[in-house]
Amino acid sequence: MSNKALELDGVFAGYGENPVLKGISFSLEEGRRLAVLGPNGSGKTTLLRVLDGLLDWRGKLKILGKDASGMKREELAKSVAMMSQFSGASLPYTVEETVLMGRYVHMPRGIFAGPGEKDRRAARECIRAAGLSGWENRRVTELSGGQLQRVFLARTLAQEPSVILLDEPTSHLDLKYQTELMDYLKNWGQQPGHTVVGVLHDINLALRLADTFLFIKEGKILAFGGKEILTPHLLDETYGMDVAAYMREAADRMEEIINGKHLSKPL
């Protein structure tokens, strides 16, 4: 029996008086890649923020088998890392300096302590993995959104977490890098002891990355399970539209492009 990466039992969380998550319960084994799907405002990002300890919550939450309430920031950061959609760069640190920040929980503390050879090696490795070799001394304020996203991927990897949380990781990325990132994370998630939880809007990308799916709507779970739970009915219920018709239309257009015909219907 494999270990549980995440165990949630009746988790409530929200902002101010109104709970956004209204009793979320599921458990995820280590080695799984979970895609969280749902309409805007359903509580997907709130769920990630709870898992990353950024938001207060009620209920029971265990991370890697340990009770998450009362877990210290540093302890949590050694297990869980989040690659966020909103993190910007305000000052011109170099790519290497930025990635090294991910090593914070592994570094010695003190006035004169700094990153050791091990940290630098780990940072270099993550920079390479994110496809940023040769960019070590570039300033993060001079990078495009997509390049910055890669820096944040490298920084997340440098943290050496067991669980990576992704909040709309592909929002700044072009098609090619979107698929590359998904494939990279899929591969990362297949290493022993690794778990990926991603909030994704694009069902195709979700299918490319994940082996487990969580559908939430209005703060409650609609469905949780493997690929077998994916039905047209569930998708329609989640998004409140005829998803199958939309997909079919997109597929038809693609078919026409592939066959070299002019588009019969305007885009």
Binding site: D52, G53, L54, K72, R73, E74, L76, A77, K78, A81, M82, S84, F86, S87, G88, A89, S90, L91, Y93, E97, T98, M101, G102, Y104, V105, M107, R109, G110, I111, R155, Q159
Partner: peptide, 24 residues
């Protein structure tokens, strides 16, 4: 203050980013 230079570096990326990386 010099004990906190690393935390301050991280906080310039926003508080949530710094917290995610382990800074209280």
């Amino acid at each position: 203050l010099c004990r906190f230079t690393r935390q301050m570096d991280m906080m310039t990326f926003g508080e949530e980013a710094a917290r995610t990386m382990g800074v209280d």
